[in-house]
Amino acid sequence: MAGLKTAAPPAPAAGAERPAPPARPRTARRRRGVGSLFVLFLAAAYFLVPVAASLWFTVDDAGKGISFDAYAKGLTDDGLATSLLTSVLLGLATVALGLLLMVPTLVVVVLRLPRLRRLVEVLCMVPLIVPPIALVAGVSTVLSWEQELASTPFYRTFQLLQNKDFPLVLVLIYTVMSLPFLYRSLDAGLRAVDLRTLVEASRSLGASRTATIYRVVVPNLRSSVVSGAVLSLAMVLGEYTVATVLGFEPFAVWMVHVGEYEAQLSVAAAMLSLLLTWGLLLLLTNIAGGRARNRRTTA
């Protein structure tokens, strides 16, 4: 206790002014606050200025002032609705096929073949380093065999793959292109849960393998499944190279075509697609977050 007494600061004399608190930390905090705001402002400007400029371009009519004609025209244009619907359907099919392939594969790799994890990772990352144009060149070569296979059952398959209304070949290619996004998201989710124990617990309680994946594995990978799906969907909605080389016209290709003769409509369509993408993103994020919110509110 004696030590504590000597270490205590002396009490100020009666009437003496209290020493002012050190000003330096507050100034430093203020500077840091200003710095953060500046960075935030720069980032916001980087993203918002092009959007605002595009928006202005679509509504500015030299003769009339503000006009929403481009949007009205876009919304009533059959091309936009058709191409957008095709892209969304392609995106959803890609996500479904990608998840059907990747979830069971990664579960098996984690549980049964952990030594293959690195190999699977490398294979899934390949589409990131292979340019889409190289990928589509290979696919074009294969599709060109169609006539040679005219007398075989494969001919019908080739025709089905290249159906103009819903080109399945694009789904197959986009699934390959979405593997890096799906792998990264699912791998992060799998590393966050003790999958082996959860699966074994489920099995010991009598659940089959399918029921275990459906009732235990997928619900616990929900947020990583959703984030992989969002990334894949965004990739499909904006994909141009593969579709245009193969001669299909999903949304991105239609937008470029329209831009050649009607620039304002093309940019208005881009703005609408931006809104649609954000909407889908919010929807999927809400689906993923819904359960977590329920958990918090049940507490």
């Binding site: 849960v193 124990t197 959860l198 074994e200 617990a201 010991s204 309680l205 089959s208 616990n220």
Partner: peptide, 17 residues
């Protein structure tokens, strides 16, 4: 899943969802 056993694991094995 057909052995009719109950098992308690070392790590907390409850289903988080």
């Amino acid at each position: 899943n057909r052995r009719d056993i109950g098992m308690v694991f070392q790590s907390y094995s409850l289903f988080p969802n």
